[in-house]
Design a protein around this nucleic acid. Structure first.
Lengths: 250, 250
DNA sequence: CGTTTGGTTGACGAAGCTCAAAGCCGGTGG
DNA sequence: CCACCGGCTTTGAGCTTCGTCAACCAAACG
């Protein structure tokens, strides 16, 4: 059987943002890289580090996060297969946030100069990557609103919806029933809450029939429409056309 | 005397992000545009609208914000002279957030196709604009952390610091003493708090000698270092080199 | 089997929210 | 010049949501 190129997941993601011709796609796949196995809960980039590498997630899940003075941590985004998780840091030259794995991951490390060389010779690729960072920004804005203006249960429901939809976009299948790769501690760091409170909120969500949880980490969304409504989730900010269809469709 | 070109403030900002040669700078200044006077508290772009124009702030202040289901509003960023306040919406094609003035503003409206045409013919300009959107993303991440993980007074102090530093970057002067162009309502929308609570926090900040407020809106930062420490403000996320010097320097 | 990691529970406390009223301008019109 | 008005700020009292602390539990793993 025919092995898929290592960097194919990145390509699949970038295709969402624009059309690339065969030569451009090949150039992307030919980017120099090493594949690295990273264990769970490891920081691959630390806030403040000079950043010269760009990390691409091939399998597993990771997050970007920031520490605040009081010792708290705030997760600012969650990433999965195909995400170039550190393009921002690498292009800006110095990491303004930490990148950490949630689960064991396989990641590809691309030297940023090679990426730059490619974007400089190929405008379509530069556009795709730019677009990717723009969508990233849109998601950040939604998170500011989520954390700033929604109450705990709405906030968590919203996060569960976003995660489900992103999973689906990557796997190109239905993901209304998935494993959330985060502990309640980490969920708390993503929502600006306490682990204890996250625990209680999850219980009420379950009691209200909005999710089922066979094991602590498994999430089954019984009624997508109801959860999305409860979580004030309108997927436009993901700028995923597929997302839009789905949210209305089911 | 020699009139400055209308779009000069944009140029001044973009120069922070990279070197442009004279021809490139001229091309930017020559972008087609109309100048519009916008009164206070007017939305120039609404969430959900198709976005085909890009707005540039020439004078005054404006914000980007999102509405949530419960009726709340969350301001996601604050903008001033020289900021291309709607590049993100315009490039993504549909507005994922609202753009609204805080004060009366003069703004320039650029057709996004013209901007695209320019970036397509001139990679250096595309890079500068890309960089601008990347810094924007970095600021968003800091806001997620600010709103998610800092308590009310730290959060407000942080915002005051960010504002002071951005003012300074634009005006190229000292801005430890400025007019905050926001009501306490708006400050609340930017920090995810209630107006009432913002009011009380401002009073404690004043009582503790961290700021002085001759009139409600005027802010005088007596001791920059102390306010920055209190507000957990480390300016690296602004990716403004000047900012760094200043924060340590005084 | 112990140990570790994460989840669950309870009692209590505090930060911040709500509601409502009152004060304080700066502007406008009589 | 004064009275009124509207937008903003300030204050108070009571309440809710969420945080803290501390213990206990359950599954996973060596």
């Amino acid at each position: 059987m025919n092995h898929e190129p290592v960097l194919a997941p990145m390509l699949r993601k970038l295709r969402l943002w624009g059309n690339l011709d065969a030569a451009q796609e090949q150039a992307l796949l030919d980017l120099p890289h090493n594949v690295v196995a990273v264990e769970r809960n490891k920081a691959v980039v630390r806030e403040g580090d000079p950043a010269s590498q760009c990390w691409l997630v091939l399998s597993g899940f990771c997050v970007r996060l920031k520490y605040v003075g009081s010792g708290g941590r705030q997760i600012v985004s969650i990433h999965m297969k195909g995400d170039m998780v550190d393009l921002q840091n690498a292009l800006l030259g110095r990491a303004d946030h930490t990148v950490q794995t949630l689960t064991a991951c396989t990641m590809a490390r691309l030297p940023i100069q090679a990426v730059r060389r490619l974007t400089d010779t190929c405008p379509a690729i530069k556009d795709a990557l730019w677009h990717d960072t723009l969508v990233d920004g849109s998601i950040h804005r939604e998170w500011v609103a989520n954390v700033g203006r929604r109450d705990a249960s709405t906030r968590i429901a919203h996060l569960l919806c976003e995660f489900a939809l992103k999973l689906e976009a990557v796997h190109l299948g239905e993901q209304m029933d998935y494993e959330l790769p985060m502990t309640q501690d980490q969920l708390a760091d993503a929502t600006g809450l306490t682990p204890v409170h996250v625990n209680r909120v999850l219980q009420t969500l379950e009691r209200d029939g909005l999710v089922e949880r066979a094991t602590p980490k498994s999430v089954v969304i019984g009624d997508w429409k109801r959860l999305a409504a409860f979580g004030d989730f309108r997927p436009d900010y993901l700028h995923l056309d597929m997302a839009k269809r789905r949210a209305e469709g089911r």
